[in-house]
């Protein structure tokens, strides 16, 4: 018999194949980084040792990772709840700013006890995040206007608004710090070094979200709307209100990231506070695929890359390296996921 192809594509890929594929992808991406560094005349082994020492190898490194993970888990979750129903919230960056701004208002202008102020910050930040996406969400739900463009454009508005506040009405008149407000009057309590309560709350939010969507009627109905709006209508599920609800939830999650960032990590509202967390949330959500809990390791990986970038910067390597490594990794993982779907056919 003549030769035939030995491989076929699986429609449903078992998770262990994905895991193996991703392990190999990360290895491949890291090899390319190592080769590039070697070609630049650097020693990849020394740099790797330095990176490991300064990230997972030290107390400060681990604290840093947790601080990076906190907003990444939440912006990842924000993008993820949208993708789950075929909606793309590209505006997590802006919603993060909105949430941070709301929390800052409470932190600067009230003197409430922490037990009141911190929950108030969380509520206000989530509402502000949801409000920031309200117009794109309503336009998508009832008018069919693409949420991708509208949510993206509002990022620039939010960013400029924060710069305005931080240099104008809310600017720090005491120390004269550039583009920054004063230190907030209260902060999320630190639990372990610089790691604050926000990390635990973000972790709990992601876990709760995963369980909640899997076991709730809302989770089911939105899955139906995302998969086939016509079938949802047929079953009497109103599609537009659920699109709105999902996008508002998405905005609220990104807003929460802003609350923890400003009132846990940075303590001041600053221009550039969002640090691309909103956009990196898209990467985190894509890495997590269909699983909400997978947002946690995905955020960890992204945090490692960010940290690596900072370490490399201290050795005079361009800060753009972070973007290059991120891109390389996403490309390798996309290829790995695709290849994991192909299996050898047993011939008889």
């Amino acid at each position: 018999m003549s030769a035939v192809s030995h491989r076929t594509r699986l429609t449903v890929v078992p998770s262990y194949r994905i895991a193996v594929g991703r392990g190999l992808s990360i290895l491949a991406a890291l090899s390319v980084v190592a080769i590039t560094l070697a070609a630049m005349g650097r020693s990849p082994i020394e740099l790797a040792a330095l990176v490991v020492r300064s990230t997972v190898g030290s107390r400060f490194g681990i604290e840093d990772l947790a601080l990076f993970m906190t907003p990444l888990m939440l912006t990842g979750a924000a993008v993820w709840v949208g993708i789950r129903v075929n909606l793309w919230n590209i505006g997590a960056e802006g919603q993060l700013y909105a949430g941070a701004t709301a929390a800052t208002a409470i932190g600067l202008f009230t003197h409430w006890p922490a037990l009141v102020a911190l929950p108030a910050m969380i509520v206000a930040g989530m509402l502000a995040g949801a409000a920031w996406i309200f117009v794109p969400a309503a336009a998508r739900a009832w008018l069919g206007v693409s949420e991708i463009v509208t949510s993206l454009l509002l990022n620039f508005v939010a960013s400029l608004l924060v710069y305005y506040l931080a240099t104008g009405p809310w600017a720090d008149r005491v120390t004269g710090a550039l583009a920054s407000t004063e230190r907030l009057h209260m902060a999320f309590p630190e639990l372990w070094g610089a790691v604050h309560l926000g990390f635990i709350l973000a972790l709990a939010t992601v876990i709760g979200l995963g369980i909640g969507l899997a076991k709730s009627r809302f989770g089911y109905e939105t899955a139906v709307c995302g998969s086939n709006p016509q079938a949802a209508h047929y079953a009497g599920i109103g599609v537009a209100p659920r699109i709105l609800a999902v996008l508002l939830l998405s905005g609220a999650l990104a807003g929460l990231a802003g609350v923890f960032e400003v009132a846990g990590t940075v303590h001041r509202l600053q221009g550039g506070l969002a640090n691309n967390y909103g956009y990196l949330g898209i990467v985190v959500a894509l890495l997590a695929r269909g699983s909400c809990l997978a947002l946690i390791p995905a955020a960890l990986l992204m945090a490692l890359i960010l940290d690596t970038g900072i370490v490399l910067q201290t050795t005079q390597i361009s800060s753009s390296a972070v973007l290059a490594i991120t891109g390389l990794l996403v490309l390798a993982i996309a290829a790995g996921d695709e290849l994991a779907a192909y299996v050898r056919v047993n011939r008889t």
Binding site: V224, N228, Q230, A231
Partner: peptide
Amino acid sequence: LKRALMPGL
């Protein structure tokens, strides 16, 4: 497929 089912679910 268009109306009564969600093909991807």
